[in-house]
Design a protein around this nucleic acid. Structure first.
Length: 560
RNA sequence: UGGGGAGUCGCCAAGCUGGUCUAAGGCACCGGAUUUUGAUUCCGGCAUUCCCAGGUUCGAAUCCUGGCUCCCCAGCCA
């Protein structure tokens, strides 16, 4: 059982949401909590959603409650089954269990409609027949109050008649809307008689053509929460102004006996921002549509499907969510935090292998051409129980181009004429020259320096380089990924974010691999020693023609 | 401009029922030790200061007053 090397102190063992929950549990307001992750199925999940997923499911888990995965599918024009499938897949991949089945806002359409009739009958809602433009004009501004719609005085009976006609498809899109009757002069614009139902003669991905009237998010969401007995409805900061309506609605429905108390409580937290990354829906769509990346699952994308392909692990993402904490202050997290989480986890789970990414040939002149041997190599230097493997060694080897320099800078301790390094887990060699024409590093080997033999460590060398036998090497495509943007804040200060795209975010190369890598399976993570963590790509790998994607490099205090 | 939020080290973030705060932890950074990955691990350093200014108090990051800065809201989107 591998124990985390660095002590993973829960960094935010305390945050304001936990305090609220603990107080509610202590006071007896709730004896069991329920949270929910409520995506609209109109796009693919990204790191920002991961934060929310980990938060909501994490809370439920920590306090012994449950967390629902609920699709907020109230706008048929934007939502598709494809997205629900992808979202379900992503949540499962992240490692969370939502009790077997996902829930849907659309399952509550009947209740929502009944509730709307109740609001109409009780005078809390009315049908407005103004155009969208008229409504906007009469809504007022930040500094001026709004004006009542002429329709605001319609009788409950007429409102009910109209609402039913709307439901029955007797009116065109936009002809009428249902509005809550609250206060057109409220300083909170969201309370100036918000629209709660609109006509949309569109086919819904689940309810088909049953409805031509669909509830607005602001109306639907509180009801969904209440119906599911969600106790703590955690959402992002931009919904803060919406909370008074959330509470107003639930109170009205509770008064009317349509809902039972205790009512859910909406709690807002700051959404995630990451340096060198864009997370806005609009920008991500643009990256895909304009072909700046190869799709939603491009390893450079901050989507969960992209992250997975890149070799980021679900565990790494969970540690990240834990580490960045939760608060109401806008956060801009350094990408390095995410990368460190990945390194930390991958270091624990990835077997070590040798691969030469930018090969240059090394010839051991005092090693016969027909000689060859197997050297014994650990699969993980800190985990002896992971066993060892045999790696073939011969006269001609591939080594990393940057591991040799004809004229080295100060401090360089790899190969250069006259210097000695250890060929990792094998022999110490001394560089005796470089043949420019054949790009070959010439060396001689010290027979008594073989790793694991007595006296091998009498050779004091600082350099220790990896290698792959030319004769035995396999080849594979390797995707070297770097941050998609070259600046910490893409598109900052009015700039077009596309101008900040990093032209070197992807580099495809062909690498030389040690034989043990030949049978790697899609999804398998390994560390290429001295390089970083790589995963076998799914889509672009074929048996015998593997592709490895670089998730993250190793730390490097020398500088690559 | 009205309303709603937020301001603790370069980036996050505990703390905020006042004293144990000359402020936890992580990332980043800088050492140094171990190391057949210039990796990992380890050890040490890194805010006399908590947006600013006043005030209350024996005592304030924590309470009060007044400023300043940043974010969000005027979709029949979510």
């Amino acid at each position: 059982m591998a124990k985390p090397s660095r002590s993973p102190q829960p960094p935010s063992s305390s945050n304001f949401i936990r305090q609220i929950i603990e107080a509610d549990l202590a006071s007896g307001k709730h004896k069991r909590i329920c949270t929910r992750f409520p995506p609209e199925p109109n796009g693919y999940l990204h790191f920002g959603h991961a934060k929310s997923i980990c938060l909501n499911f994490g809370l439920a888990k920590d306090y012994g409650g449950r967390c629902n995965l609920r699709f907020d599918d109230t706008n048929p024009e934007k939502e598709e089954q494809e997205y629900v499938d992808s979202i379900i897949d992503a949540v499962k991949w992240l490692g969370f269990d939502f009790g077997g089945a996902a829930l849907y806002a659309s399952d509550y359409f009947d209740f929502m409609y009944r509730a709307a009739e109740y609001l109409v009958e009780s005078g809390h809602a009315y049908v407005d027949s103004q155009s969208a433009e008229e409504m906007r004009a009469s809504r007022g501004t930040f500094s001026e109050p709004g004006r009542d719609s002429p329709c605001r005085i319609r009788s409950p009976a007429e409102n009910l008649r109209l609402l039913r006609e709307m439901r029955d498809g007797k009116h065109a899109d936009g002809a009428h809307v249902l509005r809550a009757r609250i206060d057109m002069a409220s300083p909170n614009i969201n309370l100036r008689d918000p629209v709660i139902y609109r006509i949309k003669k569109a086919t819904h991905h689940r309810t088909g053509d049953t409805w031509c009237l669909y509830p607005m998010y602001t109306y639907a969401h509180p009801i969904e929460d209440a119906l599911e007995h969600v106790t703590h409805s955690v959402c992002t900061l931009e919904f803060e102004d919406q909370r008074p309506f959330y509470d107003w609605l639930l109170e009205r429905l509770a008064e009317g006996g349509l809902l039972k108390r205790p009512l859910p409580q909406q709690i807002e937290f700051a959404r995630l921002n990451l340096t060198y990354v864009v997370l806005s829906k609009r920008k991500l769509v643009q990256l895909v549509q304009e072909g700046h990346v190869e799709g939603w699952d491009d390893p450079r994308m901050p989507t969960l499907m992209g992250a997975r392909r890149r070799g980021y692990t679900a565990e790494g993402l969970r540690r990240f969510a834990e580490r960045i904490g939760v608060s109401k202050a806008n956060q801009l997290i350094d990408l390095a935090v995410l990368e460190d989480c990945m390194r930390e986890h991958l270091n624990e789970v990835a077997p070590r292998r040798m691969a030469v990414l930018d090969p240059v040939k090394l010839v051991i002149e005092n090693y016969p051409d027909d000689r060859e041997e197997q050297v014994d190599v650990p699969n993980h230097p800190q985990k002896p129980d992971w066993g060892r493997r045999q790696v073939p060694f011969a006269r001609e080897l591939w080594i990393e181009r940057e591991d040799f320099m004809a004229t080295p800078p100060k401090g360089y301790f790899r190969l250069f004429p006259g210097n000695r390094v250890r060929l990792r887990y094998a022999y110490v060699v001394e560089c005796i020259g470089y043949d420019v024409a054949t790009e070959t590093v010439r060396c001689r080997l010290f027979e008594d320096s073989r790793s694991g033999t007595p006296g091998a460590d009498q050779y004091k060398v600082k350099g220790n380089i990896h290698w792959v036998s030319v004769k035995h090497a396999g080849a594979a495509a390797v995707g070297l990924y770097d941050r998609l943007f070259k600046v910490p804040n893409p598109g900052g200060g009015e700039r077009d974010f596309l101008l900040d795209l990093n032209p070197d975010s992807k580099k495809m190369i062909t690498a030389k691999l040690e034989p043990a890598l030949r049978n790697a399976q899609a999804g398998e993570c390994v560390q290429f020693e001295r390089h970083g963590y790589f995963v076998v790509d799914g889509p672009d790998s074929a048996p015998g023609a593997l592709q490895f994607n670089r998730a993250v490099t190793l730390r490097d205090s020398w500088s690559r």
